[in-house]
Lab assay of single mutants.
Amino acid sequence: MASQGTKRSYEQMETDGERQNATEIRASVGKMIDGIGRFYIQMCTELKLSDYEGRLIQNSLTIERMVLSAFDERRNKYLEEHPSAGKDPKKTGGPIYKRVDRKWMRELVLYDKEEIRRIWRQANNGDDATAGLTHMMIWHSNLNDTTYQRTRALVRTGMDPRMCSLMQGSTLPRRSGAAGAAVKGVGTMVMELIRMIKRGINDRNFWRGENGRKTRSAYERMCNILKGKFQTAAQRAMMDQVRESRNPGNAEIEDLIFLARSALILRGSVAHKSCLPACVYGPAVASGYDFEKEGYSLVGIDPFKLLQNSQVYSLIRPNENPAHKSQLVWMACNSAAFEDLRVLSFIRGTKVSPRGKLSTRGVQIASNENMDAMESSTLELRSRYWAIRTRSGGNTNQQRASAGQISVQPAFSVQRNLPFDKPTIMAAFTGNTEGRTSDMRAEIIRMMEGAKPEEMSFQGRGVFELSDERAANPIVPSFDMSNEGSYFFGDNAEEYDN
Rank of each mutant, 00 (worst) to 15 (best):
R152M: 03
P283Y: 03
Q399N: 00
E18Q: 11
T430E: 00
Q405P: 04
R246P: 11
S367T: 15
E369V: 09
R121T: 06
V242P: 04
G200I: 08
S438K: 00
Y78Q: 02
G209K: 08
D421W: 05
N309A: 14
V280M: 15
E320Y: 02
R199N: 02
T433V: 11
S262V: 11
G177K: 03
G86S: 11
A493N: 12
R382W: 07
R106V: 08
M196Y: 07
T437C: 14
M137Q: 04
D101P: 14
E115I: 06
L143I: 14
A251H: 03
D160Q: 09
N202H: 14
R317L: 03
S9G: 00
S310N: 04
L276A: 09
R150T: 03
E254K: 13
F291E: 04
Q241W: 04
P277S: 12
G282Q: 08
A22M: 00
L49Y: 13
L266C: 09
E220C: 03
K98H: 13
G212S: 08
R236F: 06
N124K: 08
D51C: 04
E449P: 11
L328S: 03
G349P: 09
A323V: 13
A2M: 09
L315G: 03
Q231G: 13
E11N: 05
R75Q: 03
F458P: 00
T424H: 15
A251P: 06
E18P: 13
E115M: 09
K184C: 06
T390H: 05
S486A: 02
S165W: 00
M239P: 02
A251R: 08
I444W: 11
T151W: 10
P477L: 03
Y78E: 06
V100Y: 14
I36T: 14
E339Y: 03
F458V: 04
L61V: 15
A337K: 05
M137H: 07
A123F: 04
G187I: 10
G158Q: 10
R243N: 02
Y296A: 14
S482I: 12
K325Y: 05
S402V: 10
S326I: 12
H324F: 04
A22T: 14
R208H: 02
M448G: 03
I425S: 02
W139V: 10
L56H: 12
R102Y: 14
D480K: 14
G356Q: 09
G404F: 11
G282L: 07
I36G: 05
I63P: 12
A471T: 09
T146N: 13
G356T: 04
S314G: 12
K229A: 08
G362F: 04
R400S: 09
H82T: 10
T23W: 04
I257L: 15
T171W: 04
K305M: 07
N368D: 05
Q308M: 14
K90F: 00
S141K: 02
T390F: 05
N334I: 04
K422W: 00
S60H: 01
N202P: 01
I444H: 00
K103E: 11
L47W: 06
Q405G: 03
R243G: 05
G132W: 08
Y296R: 04
M239E: 04
A332W: 02
G86I: 00
L143M: 12
P322Y: 04
Q241M: 10
R361E: 02
C44M: 08
R236L: 01
L110T: 13
Q149H: 08
G86T: 11
D240I: 05
W104A: 07
I406N: 14
R446G: 10
V329A: 08
S245P: 15
S262A: 15
D372Q: 08
R267I: 06
W104T: 04
V299S: 04
N76Y: 04
A387Y: 10
S457G: 15
E339N: 05
R121E: 02
I119V: 14
E80L: 05
K198Q: 13
L466H: 15
A451C: 00
E81R: 05
W386S: 07
Y219D: 11
S377D: 00
K422G: 14
L226E: 11
A70V: 04
L110F: 09
T134D: 06
I388P: 04
S367M: 11
E114K: 14
P474L: 01
L79C: 10
A85I: 11
K7P: 00
V408I: 06
A260T: 13
D468Y: 03
K214T: 03
P89E: 01
K305D: 02
K305N: 11
Q459L: 05
V270H: 12
Q4N: 15
G54L: 03
L264P: 08
E294Y: 02
Y385L: 09
W386Y: 10
C223S: 11
E434Y: 03
F458H: 13
S467H: 13
F258C: 11
L154E: 03
L341M: 09
G35V: 06
N368C: 10
T396N: 04
M440W: 13
P419G: 06
L49W: 09
Y40D: 12
E494D: 11
E294F: 04
G450C: 14
D112H: 12
E64L: 12
F429I: 04
L193K: 04
F39G: 01
R55D: 10
E14I: 03
E292T: 13
F489M: 11
S407D: 03
N432G: 04
V352Y: 10
T146I: 03
K184N: 06
L226R: 07
L358D: 06
G93S: 09
K452Q: 11
M32Y: 04
T424W: 08
K87Y: 06
S345G: 14
D88M: 03
F429Q: 00
R121H: 12
G126A: 13
V67I: 15
L226F: 10
R317F: 05
D468H: 08
C333F: 06
A131Q: 09
A22V: 15
M426H: 03
S84E: 00
S335Y: 07
L264I: 11
P83H: 10
T215I: 05
E369A: 06
E443I: 03
A233T: 15
L264Y: 04
D127T: 13
N205V: 11
R389P: 03
I388L: 07
R461N: 04
S60Y: 01
L193F: 07
Q308L: 14
T215E: 03
I444A: 05
N473E: 00
F489Q: 02
K229M: 11
V155M: 07
G393D: 01
A493L: 10
G212K: 12
K7S: 00
R74D: 12
F291Q: 05
E192W: 09
I33C: 14
P419E: 12
I265G: 02
D72A: 07
E375S: 12
F206Q: 13
E11S: 12
P277C: 12
R441V: 02
G431E: 02
G268I: 09
Y385F: 15
F206N: 08
P303Y: 03
A131S: 15
T360M: 02
Q42C: 09
K91A: 01
R99N: 12
R99F: 02
I33E: 08
T92M: 10
C275H: 05
A373I: 06
S359N: 12
R162S: 04
G460R: 15
Y289N: 10
E115C: 03
N321M: 08
R384I: 01
L259Y: 03
A237T: 12
G295Q: 06
Q459W: 09
E455L: 13
M167T: 09
I301Y: 13
S326Q: 07
E252W: 09
E434V: 13
N202G: 06
K48P: 06
G35K: 10
K98Q: 14
M239G: 07
S84I: 13
G362T: 06
R261W: 11
N368V: 11
R99H: 08
D72F: 06
P474R: 15
P318I: 11
Y487H: 11
T157H: 01
Q235H: 08
P83T: 10
V109P: 03
R243V: 08
T188G: 08
S467T: 13
Y281D: 07
E192G: 09
A271N: 08
P354R: 15
I57F: 07
A271T: 05
R400W: 09
N76C: 09
P410R: 00
A471Q: 01
S217A: 14
F206P: 03
Y385W: 04
L328I: 15
N395A: 13
R65H: 05
K293A: 10
S69D: 02
K305W: 11
N321C: 09
S402R: 15
S9M: 14
E320L: 05
G54A: 15
S217V: 14
F230M: 05
G288L: 10
I225F: 12
A373Q: 03
N397Q: 10
L259T: 02
E53P: 05
Y111H: 11
I301S: 13
G485Y: 14
S28A: 13
A178M: 12
F458W: 15
I316T: 11
S176K: 05
K7G: 00
A373S: 14
G460T: 06
F464P: 15
W139Q: 08
M440Q: 10
E64N: 07
P419I: 10
E64H: 07
G268Y: 02
